[in-house]
């Protein structure tokens, strides 16, 4: 089956039909997607800026326990994102900005995994005001850069087709 057949199946699926069946579906999902973005960014900034040393006096252990809030917000945006994709799959699949956004999300996920496996345990015992190690700072910097890229390419989807 060619990719266009798959995209067409997605397009005519019940979710796809639902997204195109009225005026409010699209703006409703967009609003949830934006709110999810804000919910994701607060705790992301708390952790990454703590690790980078910009906000050294946020307790590291407490900041790390905000990770479930990031994951929850990400799931909200994954679900609303899937709704958009089902509503107009051909447009998104071939959209340059969407492709970069997805690539950056995958990279940010790998980066987060690296953080979780390599740094999380070490950082948990970091004292207030103490600087994180260099590798953890690299990961936090990459995380911020990648997520800013995700937001930028996401917002540029309508302009880069």
């Amino acid at each position: 089956m060619a990719i266009n057949d798959i995209l067409d199946m997605i397009r005519v699926s019940p979710i796809g039909e639902f997204m195109r069946s009225g005026f409010w579906q699209w703006p409703l999902m967009q609003n949830l997607h934006f709110i999810g973005l804000c919910l994701l960014f607060g705790p992301l900034l708390a952790i990454d800026l703590r690790v980078l040393g910009v906000c050294r006096f946020i307790p590291m252990k407490g900041a790390l326990s905000l990770i479930p809030m990031i994951l929850g917000a990400f799931v909200l945006n994954l679900l609303t994102g899937i709704m958009f994709f089902f509503g107009d799959p051909v447009r998104f699949y071939y959209n340059f900005s969407f492709q970069w956004k997805m690539a950056l999300i995958v990279l940010a996920g790998i980066n987060a995994l690296w953080f979780w496996l390599g740094e999380h345990a070490k950082l948990s015992s970091l004292a207030d005001g103490e600087q994180a190690n260099f590798q953890a700072k690299i990961i936090a910097g990459l995380s911020l850069a990648m997520w800013l890229g995700v937001v930028t390419f996401g917002r540029l989807i309508p302009y880069l087709e």
Binding site: L37, L40, F41
Partner: peptide
């Protein structure tokens, strides 16, 4: 928006 509202919501 993500930066300012993100921090406001978290706090």
């Amino acid at each position: 928006m993500a930066t300012s509202v993100g921090v406001v919501l978290l706090i």
